[in-house]
Nucleic acid binder design. Structure first.
Lengths: 160, 160
DNA sequence: CTGAATCCGTTTTGATACTG
DNA sequence: CAGTATCAAAACGGATTCAG
């Protein structure tokens, strides 16, 4: 049972011929591209999943709030609603987003089985690290808001 | 000037109970929270919009590719499809994402009205700056993939 | 209080065909 | 080549109801 990698690669190259050679593209585009699509190529890959979380409607707000401390479910919900004046987060969504963040190890959920029950949410160390990066990102974007708005109005004008 | 965090939090709870005072929450949660929801509170705010772009299905791939140079429409499409082996990007989606990135000033579109037409896409300086931050983020996430996967299997186990 | 379950509308995305 | 138009599918999000 031999495992001829090189032959395998030639095989791939042949199969995909001139066109779709992934490895070739990786070499051309660098490892960043590879990280985006490596290992599992669907959107469950951690890189894509986390980035999707950071871009969704509620998770960023939740993370920003949890960065400042530990909160109970209802407390957290109130704060999220205030930050997102646009609209209130539904219980359903809050639960879903928290579960997703917990699943990826960014948030811990501590249940105290009293009556009535009490559940506390907080960032894990991993979540805190990520949040630091997020803060840089948010900081950068908000310091370039003017550029972005300018680009937008330029774009709209040219559209007429 | 003392800095009674616990008291501050209790204070928040009280204020919120009566009337949801946004300014109070901003002070408690810091300017990051404010940046997330300031100025325009819907999702058109640059901060939210850009973060949504970075989290969507195609934009990150497009940005990673454009970071390496200037590409024509069809070229770009081919590369995106290779990176996203899961599925091919539709022309429609490619066009929509490129327009959105262009609108926010991250991408320039240069049309040469020959026959057949030629359109080139590239990052703007703003887009390149953002891409640097993105790379840090991608780098961090992919270097913590193991932690995330571990958290996931822990989560699944506990679920049974 | 902290959710889970269900139903349903909206938004986002995709497949396909067509065009200057 | 570089799109647009149209229709269909799927994901997302929300309101409501119920439960431990």
């Amino acid at each position: 049972m031999n495992f001829d990698l090189e032959g395998k690669r030639r095989n791939i190259e042949k199969t995909l011929a001139q066109r779709e050679d992934r490895e070739e593209v990786y070499r051309a585009l660098g490892d960043l591209a590879e990280r985006m699509s490596r290992s599992r190529h669907d959107r469950d890959a951690p890189v894509r999943e986390i980035m999707a979380r950071l871009g969704d409607r509620w998770s960023p707000l939740i993370l920003v709030i949890l960065e400042t401390g530990t909160y109970r479910y209802a407390e957290l919900r109130r704060l999220v609603c205030i930050l997102a004046s646009e609209q209130n987060i539904s219980q359903r969504m809050l639960t879903l987003r928290l579960r997703a963040l917990e699943r990826d190890g960014l948030v811990v959920r501590t249940v105290t089985p009293t009556v009535p029950p009490r559940t506390d949410y907080a960032l894990t160390p991993l979540g805190q690290e990520l949040q630091k990066l997020m803060n840089m990102l948010i900081g950068w974007i908000s310091s370039h808001e003017a550029d972005i708005e300018a680009a937008r109005s330029r774009f709209e004008r040219q559209d007429d």
